[in-house]
Amino acid sequence: MSFEIKLSLFEGPFDLLLFFIERDELDIHDIPIFQITNEFMDYIRQLEQLNIEVASDFILTAATLMRIKAKMLLPRTEKDEQGNEIDPRQELVQHLLEYKKYKTATPILSEMEDMRLAQENRGNIHEELQQIANANHFEYELQDLSLYKLMRVFDKVMTRFEEEQNRPKHTIIQYPYTIEDQRDYILKEIQAKSKMSFSEIISAFPDKIGMIFNFLAILDMLQLNLIGVEVGDGFNDFTITIADGDATQVTQLFVE
């Protein structure tokens, strides 16, 4: 059985994404991934503040958007068979177009359903079968029933029960990190120390997830031109500094 969530406006993550795209009149073939990701995450935070449980498909879509956002920040190295660079948004756009196609057809199917429900079913079926059963002296509900069929049904039920018991169970762990929090931490440290090495950040957050979030926060700040990077002496180490001419922008960010 699949878990479904129905909110006041949006029944699924693609419904929410299409709302953002149509509201802001965006080109679905050239989605501004940074804007869409931020709006999607803001909506999920609002649900959490209202103590509304967020369905797993919303969480999966949020993770997909963050992965695409990270890929957009990095140089594109993936290419197709013709040698063209692969857009990280391509798969998401295809899913959105398919979802939009089925969503457009939903009102038509709903109208057809209403028309079918308004029609009368063929009458007297139960009475006709009962008359045939009485004329032949047997109960028509049990005419096709046998011990073999009962055993087959019982076997299917037990098989289905065992499959449900052995089905893998997934546990979702919420890590105590966000890109916004790590970005604020790094900016405060740089403002206090003027510069900071990446190895210092690793020492402060030594776990793998912490390193990933901090690295994504650094990429995000580089994209926004809030910091600069200098190559360090150690292996795979570098120094983070405030970008030239952006000290005022960083100060205003803390005030807000």
Rank of each mutant, 00 (worst) to 15 (best):
I28A: 12
H29T: 11
H29K: 15
I31Q: 07
I31L: 14
P32Q: 09
P32K: 04
I33K: 10
I33Q: 07
I33E: 02
F34L: 07
F34Q: 10
Q35H: 05
Q35W: 00
Q35A: 08
I36P: 03
I36Q: 01
I36D: 11
T37C: 03
T37S: 08
N38F: 00
E39I: 03
E39Y: 08
E39F: 13
F40P: 02
F40A: 08
F40Y: 13
M41H: 06
D42F: 08
D42R: 13
D42W: 03
Y43A: 12
Y43I: 00
Y43P: 07
I44Q: 09
I44C: 04
I44R: 12
I44M: 14
I44D: 02
I44L: 15
R45S: 09
R45V: 00
R45K: 12
Q46D: 00
L47M: 10
E48D: 10
E48S: 09
E48T: 00
Q49M: 09
Q49F: 08
Q49Y: 03
Q49A: 08
Q49T: 05
L50Q: 13
L50T: 01
L50N: 06
N51G: 11
I52C: 14
E53Y: 05
E53A: 14
V54I: 12
V54W: 05
V54N: 10
V54P: 02
V54R: 15
V54T: 04
V54Y: 08
A55H: 09
A55F: 01
A55L: 07
A55D: 09
D57R: 08
F58R: 13
F58S: 04
I59V: 06
L60F: 04
L60M: 14
T61C: 15
A62K: 11
A63M: 14
T64H: 13
M66I: 13
R67F: 01
R67L: 10
R67T: 01
R67W: 00
I68V: 13
I68W: 01
